[in-house]
Design a protein around this nucleic acid. Sequence first.
RNA 1: GCAGGCGUGAUCCAGUUUGGUUAGGAUUAAGGCCUUCCAAGCCUUCUGCCCGGGUUCGAAUCCCGGCGCCUGCACCA
Length: 492
Amino acid sequence: MVDREELESVCKRRGFMWPSSEIYGGEAGFYDYGHLGARLKDGWELIWKDFFLGLNDNYHMIYTPNILPYRALKASGHVDLFSDIIVHCMRCSASYRADHLITDLTGKNVEGLNASEIEGMIKENEMKCPSCNGNFSEAEEFNMMFSLSIGPTGEHKGFLRPETAQGSYMNFFREYRALRRQMPMGLATIGNAFRNEISPRQGVYRLREFLQAELQIFFIPDTNDMTFEDMYDGKAEVTVLLDGEEEARRVRMDELEDLPVFYRSHLAKVYEFYREHMNLAPEDVRLRELSKEEKAFYNLIHFDVEINMPSLGGWKEVGGIHYRGDYDLTKHQEESGTKMSIPVNGTRVVPHVLELSFGVDRNIWAVLDRGYRLDEREWLSLPKRCAPYHVAVFPLVRKDGLEERSREIYKVIKREFRAFWDRSGSVGKRYARMDEIGTPLCITTDYETPEDDTVTVRDITSKEQVRVKVPELIDIIGSIIDGEKEFGELQR
RNA sequence: GCAGGCGUGAUCCAGUUUGGUUAGGAUUAAGGCCUUCCAAGCCUUCUGCCCGGGUUCGAAUCCCGGCGCCUGCACCA
């Protein structure tokens, strides 16, 4: 069981993350990454890029701005739909989403109505506060986007983007040509998104400024199936919680035959990413299918990736696999007049989008939550490649030339790996420090080093050591960090 | 946003009820001595009452306002 406050304490004390602008009291929904958090986040992003861009030769990174003009978000639907109509009770001052109130009372779906239309319905039905029977205030529109004015006169209206996806959609056709008209095509990006959350809570879990890692896959349904079929192993097992079922269960991918191939293949790969690269146990990660009520209107199929995080009270969403159909490209085509369709078998077709979306901050927290260990030591078991430091180098004691030799070895190693050198305190103390920040390997020069040019390599998990020759260090560290070898396989 | 609780060195906590010596402890950190493998020991050292205002001879302590955090409710296209 991981205590959230204990983990937050470690994060602050050692340099992972903490509330932003804290010397001025902070502002809810914003977090800083310190020197270790930044390394951890960079490591996570590297693994993510390697894995997801590696799925297909035609999946690529792009970067687009944080600020979007009004029309882009008008087209995407965010100006009209990424907002809630709120009413307040004038007696007990509770606030409610007006559309929920009306739907609960009348059963009507009022999505898309504006504030005055909503208010009319409230008056018409003589609605009262459910908790105290008081009267309601006027309806107010609350949009979750941060609005901006662009330019000196401020006449160009814009917003901080509420999701990174729109940048990929708007670039679809230019990249389609630049990438020589290949389908499927994937545009991935890692960048900030902004939502003016009413009540940011739970540390880094719900932020007002957060980092998304997204891959938008453009494809023509039914024609690209062979490409996707080759991508995954139908015998691979995943944990799913399907809509309408009470319990998550293990299934083979090819049992999910109701899902189209393009979707099933990426679902399998997302699960593989968490099991094999984030080192999560099968019982700690699941794919949850959202019900019709939970899904956004444009999503045809939607599974969330959920990780069991005791520090946040259980299963929490860290990503989603969204089949958005042709909604996005069609909307941008209509608003901009730019052609988004491509020729297929003599007709023009607007490609469909499969979106793989990940909240980086949540994923970082998940890595820390699932990695935190408190036994006879306090330590972090991190995926080795994203650990802030891959390897630390120490002298056993600070005399007889051991310190100088350890420094020489460190200088060689740090060219290849994220490395750390320390000489303070006792060697045990230094191991303990590295345990606390999740450094997988520690190398110590001792009295045998000057005699036969060997050092000890210590494993964070078992605390065991093996003695290896200095010239072999780079290869050995590399094979452990990359997961090609387990520490236990090294010759003792 | 509402209700309740809370805010003390880097971290965690005592002190606030009943205002009154240099605000205490643990951990951590830095420098040194020592040290032949898992937070040993010794010496030295840094950092604090969330912010602002008020009451008072005197405020960490009482009052008002603000900010933040926690829990619940609401919210999370």
